[in-house]
Design a protein around this nucleic acid. Structure first.
Lengths: 280, 280
DNA sequence: ACGCATCTCTTTACGCTGTAAGGATACCAG
DNA sequence: CTGGTATCCTTACAGCGTAAAGAGATGCGT
């Protein structure tokens, strides 16, 4: 057997990502029976990351949760970064893949974005996984397929469509990222949100007493907008103000983008031929 | 002097962020002359992060660059995370604060977004700084003020305006994040982009030969869009395809959002009273 | 049934991180 | 000159990912 330098790794990680239930190697091998398997390790990793955040995810942490040492994991998984990739693709399976487009693409995409938002808040650590070389697991593709299916028939030309989707993805991701960061700030630092802001604004007036002169537009906006936000938030009150505002900004931004898409669809299907691209 | 638990830190970091050239303590103090100062340390930190990335930014790295040990820095800066905050606010000063709105807000915002994009590509590590509790330094406020000044007069109501701005910020951030991650992937892993993708797609056909059946919409889109991207990219060719596409998706997404804003402005100034909020 | 190849899992170790603690040295006010 | 204070260094600790080597269990070929 020939092994090319650096290829064994890629091969192994792909086979881990795409492995099916059977299709494994020989049923009986020499050596002690494995008392662990990749799925247990992935599940435990997800549990650790969900409960204590990405920073607390260490090989030792996962290992001891399974009653094993850190090094024992290396029998099943080539490295920590591979484990994270596997965890990523694993949780991605939670996302729905079917959306009702009978009322048009817009409600479907909105529902999709809401689900993605909830998903990110459920697994905030996913937002910490680098997108540089995407994981390319089955569930990553399934997620993409879902969006392409919804948006494929609206009449955007392929290249444009792909860019719109990329923008949509990154928008959702970015908004969810700040939301989760806000949520994590309080437990991590031990200082509750309100206290922190109160303290900071007190120090602001001390260190930057000329704030209103230096940043007039900002000062004007803050005084009016904060007031409006307060009175508006009176109805809800479940989550913190910051989180509520994050959610609200997400909705607003999403609507802006979808308005833009609608406008693009109108001009596109006017000017160019309206091919029902995507689903055959 | 009374020191409340946990407050000394906040006070110190605010004074570091907002300190002005003079206004420092007594000119002559006992003890050896400081051979370093906060600005040198910040500048060195920025240099390290720019050149080698956030992962390579360690107290030891900064220290030895200054011909000192890691611990020497703790005389000037309370902790690494404070240093990162200071670095963040420092580089933020590079962003322009004045934009020509004589041709309307849209070209101004577009120029602003382009500058932000270039800024993030120049200092990718900034995207790694948590937004949970924003740095609240002078330059962070200046950046916000800039956008509010541009968008303050278009006739969005304050609360809506704030959310639009939040969405805009996160969109730019998110798009820039993937772009920088792509750019860093090749040097970090040592595998050039094309090789990686070639290898991956070869493995894809091996491990998921049923790809086209499982993800029909995706397969259709890829075959048409990739072709279009290739022929379109033939003109340029400076940056890699991935990076080019990231930039393109950024433009497309931004235009979608701005289209949405235009629509919102039209309906807002029709229905509600058009107050020239913001700049007085 | 035996020996051996092979597999799982543990122990130990290395270099890296942020930073707490304590000591050496340089400097200024009295 | 002396005492107090500030700068800076050395040492040390707990944590990280993982390389290397070895212990023990297991199935196969003989």
């Amino acid at each position: 057997m020939v092994v090319f330098a650096g290829q064994g790794d890629a091969r192994r990680s792909m086979s881990l990502l795409w492995r099916s239930a059977e299709s494994e190697g020989p049923a009986s091998k020499p050596g002690p029976k494995p008392r662990l398997d990749v799925d247990m390790i992935i599940a435990t990793g997800v549990a650790v990351a969900d409960e204590q955040g990405m920073a607390a995810l260490s090989m030792r942490a996962v290992g001891t949760r399974l009653g094993r040492t850190a090094m024992a994991l290396y029998t099943y998984v080539p490295s920590k970064s591979e484990l994270v990739d596997l965890m990523h693709d694993r949780v991605l399976a939670e996302l729905p893949t079917e959306y009702d487009t009978s009322a048009g693409w817009r409600p479907a995409i909105t529902a999709w974005a809401d689900d993605a938002w909830a998903f990110y808040l459920r697994h905030p650590w996913v937002l910490q996984v680098s997108q540089a070389r995407p994981v390319l697991g089955p569930n990553e593709y399934a997620r993409l397929e879902t969006v392409v299916r919804i948006l494929g028939g609206v009449g955007l030309e392929p290249l444009h469509l792909r860019r719109v989707i990329a923008a949509l993805f990154q928008f959702v991701r970015g908004m969810a990222l700040v939301a989760t960061e806000h949520r994590q700030a309080a437990p991590e630092t031990g200082v509750p949100d309100e206290e922190w802001w109160a303290q900071r604004s007190a120090l602001m007036t001390e260190f930057a007493p000329d704030f209103a002169e230096r940043f007039p537009a900002l000062a004007a906006l803050e005084s009016t907008a904060s007031l409006a936000a307060m009175t508006e938030a009176e109805a809800g009150g479940a989550a913190s103000h910051m989180e509520q505002e994050g959610r609200e900004a997400f909705r607003v931004g999403l609507d802006l983008i979808l308005d833009g898409v609608e406008a693009a669809v109108r001009t596109d299907s006017d000017g160019t031929l309206h091919a029902s691209a995507g689903t055959p």
